[in-house]
Design a protein around this nucleic acid. Structure first.
Lengths: 105, 105
DNA sequence: GTTTATCATAAATCATGGTTTATGATGCGC
DNA sequence: GCGCATCATAAACCATGATTTATGATAAAC
């Protein structure tokens, strides 16, 4: 599996992670997000750009507004990566356990 | 649920994410990781400290070595958060869908 | 067409973070 | 005890990134 750190970097910033949480509740416009956050409108737009490039959200123009919603693609990739880490860790644990069992008489 | 961006920040760096992948395959010492990575030993130790503080890995001293392995605690929390984002997004989608249905005659 | 609202981009500033070199601490073998 | 390997921390340097102000572009309202 190819998976880079971009999506994690997108959620590494507290403000940006909050933006993602707000958008995950239901689709919202930039103006709505600005009203809910303690940062300027350009800052929100910038964060949305980062999230968009990570394929975690996607924009849908509606008149003069831009409605942002979760992009299942990026979120699904991240979940798949975490699942693999989880499975690998389980396998790694059992290997270690077996090694110790063999060492024991 | 209380969940901050710390764990995401821990995986946001490519080198650090690679460290976590290597440790997830099976437990490894710092020296082993240094041999597998293109950075210095203090850099590896620093990354491990960040991952440790995010509860994504944990250290177990074995003689002069420190064996690092995945900490299921932090990984489980992150998976739970992603699952909630996923569920919320699904709910948000159906809400939007219903809104449009109501608007349609 | 003019105004108003919405949103994105650019430049500048300030803070944060990754890496290296240097150094000290701990455990093991001889 | 002495030398060696392992690992962590501190300081310094350099790069990256988050935010604001300023500005332009697009769409709706009147």
């Amino acid at each position: 599996m190819v998976y880079d750190a971009q999506a994690f970097a997108a959620l590494a910033d507290p403000t940006r992670k909050r933006v993602f949480e707000l958008v995950s509740e239901h689709p919202r416009s930039v103006a709505q997000l600005v009203r809910l956050l303690p940062v300027s409108q350009p800052a929100v737009s910038h964060h949305l750009r980062i999230l968009r490039e990570a394929r975690l959200v996607r924009a849908e123009p509606r008149g003069a507004s831009n409605i942002y919603q979760v992009d299942p693609h990026g979120l699904g990739l991240m979940r798949a990566w975490l699942d693999r880490m989880w499975d690998d860790a389980l396998k790694g644990f059992s290997e270690e356990f077996n090694k110790k069992e063999e060492a024991r008489p």
